[in-house]
Amino acid sequence: MNTIKRIDPRRPFIITAAGVKRITLGEIGSSDANVAHWPTLGHGGAAAKPRRTLTDPKHVLLVAAHSERGALDEHARQAVAAAALLADTHTEVVLVVFGELKDDAAALGVDKLVELAGFDRRVFAPESELQALQACVAAFAPKNVFLPDNAIGDGDLGRRYAASAGASIGAHIVEINAQHVGAYAHAKRAFATRSLPDVILLAQNAVDAKLPFVGAGERLLSDFIDVAAPAAQRTRDLGLEDLDAAQVALEEADFIVSAGNGVSDIPSFERLADVLGAAVAASRVAVDNGHFKRDKQVGATGKTVEASVYIAFGISGAVQHLQGIKDCRHVIAVNLDGSAPIAKRADLTVVGDAQATIAALIEQVQSARAAQAARGQPPAAVGNREPEGVAA
């Protein structure tokens, strides 16, 4: 007999620090008791967050993820937050990062960090990564292992580890609390739950990554991981193939430069985008002026983008444009008016002429690449790149 409940095809709930926001078959907040509640902090940002209470640690929740340019993406941060929210006062959160991490581990909710800087997300080395994860699991003996269920390495690593260890696994998890996990089934026409498996692969946006507390943030040596002698590879890495950033849809672009009414030298702007390997976007005014095609428009009446870096040149920041970049991780504004609306949204504002800044950036990038070439080093990877593929 099929015991899987049919549900409305909406996300059943999202776990937050204040409890579980749940909407399943009209049931609201039924799982709140299973999640620790933390005091709500104001939005002023001045108050220091308290450290998560940890006494006599006996257990570990381990999170593994790849970094990109020294940072974790939002999906990986959500996986860390899931472990931090589920950890009790006797449980430490350990984060294993494949690659360099410049983020503040404590702010992510991490108690102990193992940074495996010898790994590169752009290199396909599944056997070596599996060997490293197995060594970390052996060292910390975690109750559960968390990974973001994505298509860029973490999901694959989690499945490989579960298969090698004979561990139970839950994939595409959209619901999680201290007792169970849940995932859609039958093409989202049904929903299934089970007790927490050994390996938990979280779907995106199942957890709110904003935490009202911090972890200990202790960085550990990775001397128990032999990254210098990787496991024998049974796959061949064919490397990366450069992809013209102009061919990347704005909704998928990770690095975007955007022009507004303050950009008068369009050829120089497009040259900068080419030099940086960034996708090109524009404000509604720049599109209406005929400088760019309509598919480049960002805003309420254009595209909504989720880039890691969005650089706005000569854009004042109308409400409609700000709505289109609300999900960007880092926004940099270049504007003559330091009090323009976009400056309130930007993480960094350069008060200056857009054309002069564009010319200076082009010169700096070219100088840096020339210096690298003189030292015999390959140019740093920039822009939007896609994997060429791998062969067994």
Score class of each variant (00 low, 15 high):
T349A: 12
A203C: 03
G290Y: 08
E251A: 15
D226T: 11
R51G: 11
G170Y: 02
G376P: 00
Q131L: 09
H180S: 12
A286C: 11
A178G: 00
V137E: 10
A346H: 02
K5F: 13
H321I: 09
A139E: 15
D103C: 07
G290F: 07
P378T: 13
D288C: 06
T3R: 06
T53N: 08
T357G: 04
L108M: 03
L202K: 03
F313M: 06
L272K: 04
R219Y: 03
V350L: 15
L116T: 01
T53L: 12
L116G: 03
G170A: 15
A165K: 07
T24V: 14
Q134I: 12
T53G: 03
I173L: 05
E27T: 13
P341Y: 12
R159G: 14
R6T: 14
P126Y: 04
G277H: 06
G109M: 06
N177T: 10
G170H: 06
Q323R: 05
V60K: 03
L72Q: 01
L25Y: 00
E68P: 00
A203Q: 02
R194M: 15
G277R: 07
E252L: 12
T40V: 14
A190Q: 13
E218S: 10
P126A: 02
R236Q: 13
G383C: 10
I266M: 12
G26E: 11
I7T: 13
T349C: 11
A354K: 04
D154E: 12
A71L: 13
H43F: 11
A318G: 13
L54G: 04
H172I: 01
K296E: 03
G26D: 13
N177A: 12
T16A: 08
G45S: 11
K188Q: 14
I173E: 00
K210D: 12
A333W: 01
D242K: 14
K344G: 06
A18Y: 10
D32V: 13
L240S: 09
L85W: 02
V309W: 04
S31V: 08
V35A: 09
L157F: 09
V263A: 04
V280F: 05
N144S: 10
A370H: 04
V248S: 02
L85N: 00
N261W: 10
T3V: 07
A253K: 04
Q297M: 14
G352N: 10
T301R: 10
G215R: 00
A333F: 01
R10L: 08
I176K: 00
Q320E: 15
A343W: 01
A79W: 04
L108S: 01
D353I: 09
V390F: 12
V93L: 02
V93Y: 00
G45K: 11
G383M: 07
Y310R: 05
A312R: 03
S258M: 08
A370P: 01
I28D: 01
I332R: 07
K21W: 11
A391I: 15
A167R: 04
A354I: 05
F124L: 08
R369N: 12
A370D: 11
A354C: 14
T235V: 14
A139G: 01
A381M: 10
S268R: 15
E306R: 10
M1W: 04
A279D: 06
A209M: 05
G170E: 06
L157D: 02
D8M: 08
I200N: 02
G352V: 12
I315E: 05
